[in-house]
Amino acid sequence: MNFHSNKAIYIQIADLICEKILLQIFKEEERIPSVRELAINLEVNPNTVMRTYEYLQDLEIITNKRGVGFFVSVNGLKKVTDYLKKEFTEQDLPTVFKNMQLLQITIGEIDALYQQYLKWNKKPL
């Protein structure tokens, strides 16, 4: 895996897992890959993955069942949505706003584009 963004690697891995939960590849109350499996797969240090899992545990997105492994929490999907929403509003939106200001794009223009996007990309269910 390539870690392109400027976020710390453990956060990028957390984002990756959140995305998988959001896409329901990792379903609620199901086991996610072990630290070792994920480390080998992503070619990163297991300690980094461990840090990711601790971070996600703090956010109550995943839980650790001793001796069994890590599982997506009961209401993991909601937690992930909240977390990613927060991340989006705090980190991604400011950049968008900055560019909107710079390029003098109005919110109306954005809304039109967004409606068009929604038309073409229906949420897969």
Partner: peptide
């Protein structure tokens, strides 16, 4: 090599 190293830590 990266995978191998990750697997033996």
């Amino acid at each position: 090599l990266r995978k191998l190293i990750a697997s033996i830590v």
